Simulated scan of single mutants.
Amino acid sequence: MLNEADLAHLRRCVELATEALDAGDEPFGSVLVDAEGNARAEDRNRVAGGDHTRHPEFELARWAAAHMTPEERAGATVYTSGEHCPMCSAAHAWVGLARIVYVASSAQLTQWLTDLGVPAGPVAPLPVNAVAPQIIVEGPVPELAEEVHALHVRLHTQDPATPHG
């Protein structure tokens, strides 16, 4: 069961996803929170430059590996606007992060993109636990999912000649 602190971190993820979209990128945002509830790092999607590994969840896994002890990572949570892709799920597991809380699931995103006529990407949209079965995963969060959906609609239905903002 999510509490108000969880929801506050998820709202920040939606803000970061909006910032990503406004900057011309895909709308994803994530926050890394330690066991005491302190936000330690945050990021947004940065794939617009052509490097499609620049997901915020992957960047936070790298950050955690460089800046947190294994014990700290084992108590940390990654909050994110969208469920981790397989690449990010693997990175999360390999660095020993504990929990993932997401707003929208991979299944929801896949359906939204299908409805918008967006072709499937090069990687199967597997749920986190299909890749990293030991990870504690919570989501989706219906009270915020429509905000994330609206960001993806905005990304895929706007005039390509205009900026995302």
Score class of each variant (00 low, 15 high):
44 R>V: 04
95 V>K: 11
89 S>T: 11
71 E>M: 09
31 V>Q: 07
125 P>M: 14
55 H>S: 05
73 R>W: 12
69 T>W: 07
30 S>L: 07
74 A>W: 04
85 C>F: 03
83 E>L: 06
38 N>L: 12
102 Y>G: 09
78 V>N: 03
21 L>G: 00
20 A>E: 07
69 T>E: 05
70 P>M: 15
94 W>Q: 15
130 A>H: 07
99 R>A: 13
124 A>C: 04
56 P>N: 03
94 W>M: 14
31 V>M: 07
73 R>Q: 08
81 S>T: 07
40 R>L: 15
74 A>Y: 01
32 L>S: 08
122 P>C: 12
93 A>W: 07
128 V>R: 10
39 A>M: 12
48 A>E: 04
23 A>Q: 11
125 P>Y: 09
43 D>I: 05
22 D>P: 00
84 H>Q: 08
117 G>V: 06
57 E>P: 00
128 V>T: 15
63 W>D: 05
29 G>F: 10
107 A>P: 00
19 E>V: 11
76 A>R: 00
53 T>K: 03
67 H>L: 13
93 A>S: 09
40 R>E: 08
52 H>L: 03
113 L>F: 02
115 D>L: 04
34 D>Y: 02
102 Y>K: 07
96 G>H: 10
70 P>L: 15
68 M>K: 10
109 L>R: 10
97 L>T: 05
82 G>D: 00
23 A>H: 12
31 V>C: 12
94 W>P: 00
23 A>Y: 08
82 G>S: 10
22 D>M: 09
34 D>V: 07
27 P>Q: 14
18 T>H: 03
30 S>Y: 03
35 A>D: 04
95 V>D: 10
107 A>T: 10
106 S>H: 09
93 A>Q: 08
105 S>F: 12
123 V>I: 15
100 I>D: 03
96 G>V: 11
46 R>Q: 11
47 V>E: 06
102 Y>C: 15
111 Q>D: 08
122 P>W: 10
41 A>V: 06
89 S>E: 02
48 A>D: 02
87 M>R: 12
60 L>T: 11
128 V>P: 00
33 V>F: 01
52 H>S: 01
107 A>I: 04
106 S>I: 03
108 Q>G: 09
21 L>R: 02
48 A>V: 09
87 M>W: 01
77 T>S: 06
86 P>H: 09
133 P>C: 14
73 R>F: 13
123 V>M: 06
54 R>M: 05
131 V>H: 01
126 L>N: 09
30 S>K: 03
46 R>L: 14
73 R>G: 12
63 W>G: 08
36 E>W: 03
127 P>C: 15
101 V>H: 08
46 R>C: 05
33 V>I: 05
70 P>W: 15
73 R>D: 11
106 S>C: 10
34 D>S: 12
117 G>T: 02
22 D>H: 14
36 E>K: 14
111 Q>Y: 01
116 L>D: 03
84 H>I: 00
36 E>V: 02
69 T>P: 02
107 A>C: 04
76 A>I: 01
25 D>S: 13
97 L>M: 01
82 G>C: 14
25 D>G: 14
58 F>R: 02
38 N>F: 10
78 V>I: 15
77 T>Q: 03
84 H>F: 12
62 R>H: 11
116 L>V: 06
60 L>W: 07
105 S>P: 03
80 T>I: 14
115 D>G: 04
63 W>Q: 04
102 Y>A: 13
121 G>A: 07
120 A>S: 11
84 H>P: 00
96 G>L: 12
97 L>W: 02
66 A>L: 13
37 G>E: 06
